[in-house]
Design a protein around this nucleic acid. Sequence first.
DNA 1: AACGAACGCAACCGCATGCGA
DNA 2: ATCGCATGCGGTTGCGTTCGT
Length: 238
Amino acid sequence: MNVQFGWGTFEDGWRKGPWTPQEDKLLIDHVNLHGEGRWNSVSKLTGLRRSGKSCRLRWVNYLRPDLKRGKITPQEENIILELHARWGNRWSTIARSLPGRTDNEIKNYWRTHFKKGKTSKNVERARARFLKQQQEQQQQQQQQQEFVLQVQVDQEQQQQVQQQVLHQYNCYDQQTNEVQHVGEQDIDEMIMAYMYPNMSSSMTSMSDGSSEDIGSSLGNFWNLDDVVQQHDQVLYFY
DNA sequence: AACGAACGCAACCGCATGCGA
DNA sequence: ATCGCATGCGGTTGCGTTCGT
């Protein structure tokens, strides 16, 4: 049974073809009231003569409020190319990386812009870019591991130097073998004096503004946990 | 201006999958 | 375990619009 009805047709009791604004409104009101899902019950509850499948498709691909309208941007195109190089025709998977875009939209875009034989060079470029990106990620991971290792080594060196300085300046209590009360600033100055014996004492003093940078940078230098944390944060943005 | 080709997009179809009875 | 229903997914189709000749 196939009956002509305006633009659309009736088939087995279901209306087919383009949706009218009235139908859209019925469906939007229904979803606002009951939420998404249970698409087969939409026709019973709203009187819409549309199958559940048709309702779901109309909502997902056209009526959803979070859909992004307008053309695919060059950035989105890059993402599509790269994800297609990775996933192939898994449109819904690709669509998850493009908020506001539907699998149908991406599929259509691909078919019209990058259909095989049409712009295969673009596809090849995307593949190459994907492989390069993978290599860069591996390099980054390696660098991060090396950095963490280096920081661990630095921390050990720091402790060694600190111990040497404390010995040098007789900061250990002879009886308890514990470090006598020494201010952090004092330790910094002792370390500076220990490492740079030729530097004038005024340079290591915290009394004037010019040396504050040295003191504060020293403080930062020894705060390696922060350094690691900052490094991780920087890497996170990649 | 008219016509056909190409394009863009909404919608449909068939199959796969998930899930509850 | 299996059956049926609901939903999701990828491929395909159909039609309006745009572009080139």
